[in-house]
Amino acid sequence: MIYTYALFKSNIFETATIARHVVFDNISEAILVLDQENKIIDMNNIAEKIFNIKSKLAIGQDVCTEFKEYQEIIKYIYEEKETSFNCEIKIKNKLYYFKGKLTLINNNRGKGKVIVLSDNTEQVLMIKKLEYYGITDVLTGVYNRKYFYKIAKEKIEACSDKKHMSLLMMDIDKFKIINDTYGHPTGDIVLKKVMNICKELLGKKYYIGRYGGEEFLILLDNANSEKALEIGETIRRRIENLEILHDNKCIKITSSFGIFTSVRERDLENMIKFADKALYEAKSLGRNRVSIKMGNS
C-alpha cells in the first residue's frame, strides 16, 4: 500500500507509461482512481476481479453508482479527506475484509482520489478463529468455563437490584455409564446433541457455559423463579425425548437441573454454590427433575 501511494504521489505513471501495465495491473491490492467529481478514471485487474466489474464499462461512471452495493467503501469517499480504514463487505455472498487507504491527489494535471484496498480476509478470519477457540468449548460449541465466568460476572454486576437473576446448573444423569458402555466418542455425541437442544431453545438471549465434564451452567438474565422453572422443565423434557442411535441401538438419556434465583445475590460463586445444592437435591430425589432454591428477595 505504501508503494502504491508513492507511485501516485510521484506521478510516476505520467513519466513511465510501461508502469501502467507492468506495475499497476500487477499490484496485489485493488486500486480505484477517481477524478474530483468521483468518476472512475481507472481501476486495476485486482479490482475488476474482486468486484466483478469491467474497467472498460466502469471508466467514466460515478463510483457511487457503480459501487452502490459497497457503502462501507463509498462512505469514506464522501468524507473528502485522506484516511485509512477497515471494512467488511459481502461480494457474491462471500464476506471480505479489507484494509483501505484513501489518498487525495492534487497536482498540475488535476484533482482526484486513489482508493487502495488490501484483502485482509485470511488474517481476519484467522484472528476470529483464534478468538472463537479462546472463548468456546470446542466440543459442544458453548462458552468455556473461563469466558462464561467473565460474561456472567459482567451481566450480574450490571443487573439492577430490582431484577431477578437466575442460574441453572444441569447435569446429564449417569453419564459415566454412557461412556463406559458405549465409549467416549458416543459420549461426545451425547454432549453435542444435548447442547444443540439448549442452544436451539435458548437462542442468544441467555448464556450457556460448560462447567466441567457433563455439567453446564446457564445464566438466565432477568428471569424469575417461574420463568427459570419453565426453561429448566422445557429443556429436561426435550432431553428425555432425545433418541441417539448407536450400533442400531437407541440410547435414551435424562438430565437433572438445579436452579438458584434471587433479586439481591450478585456474587457468581455464591449463585453457583446454591445452584449446585439444588442440583444435588434433584439427583437425590431420583434424577430427571428440576429443583430450585430461592435467594432472599
Rank of each mutant, 00 (worst) to 15 (best):
M1S: 14
Y3P: 03
T4W: 10
L7G: 10
N11T: 07
A16V: 10
T17M: 09
A19V: 04
H21K: 04
N26S: 13
V33R: 04
V33F: 06
D35R: 06
Q36A: 15
E37I: 06
A47C: 13
I50N: 03
S55F: 01
K56E: 13
C64M: 15
E66S: 14
E69P: 05
I74M: 07
K75G: 09
E80V: 09
K81I: 15
C87Y: 09
I89V: 11
K92R: 03
Y97A: 01
G100S: 00
G100D: 00
T103K: 07
L104A: 13
N107D: 07
R109I: 04
V114T: 05
V114I: 09
I115N: 08
E122K: 11
M126P: 00
L130N: 10
L130V: 13
Y133V: 03
V142T: 13
Y143S: 04
Y143A: 09
Y149S: 08
Y149A: 08
K153D: 14
E154N: 03
S160E: 15
S160N: 09
K163Y: 13
D173C: 08
F175P: 00
K176V: 06
N179T: 01
T186P: 04
V190Y: 06
V194S: 04
N196L: 05
I197F: 07
C198W: 03
C198P: 01
L201E: 12
L202P: 00
K204V: 07
G209F: 07
L220E: 01
N222Q: 12
E226H: 12
E226P: 04
K227F: 11
G232D: 03
E233K: 09
R237S: 15
L242V: 01
L242A: 08
E243Y: 10
I253A: 06
F260D: 06
S262L: 02
E265A: 15
E265P: 06
E265H: 11
K273S: 11
K273A: 11
A275Y: 00
K277Y: 14
Y280K: 03
E281A: 12
N288P: 02
K293Q: 08
G295M: 05
N296P: 09
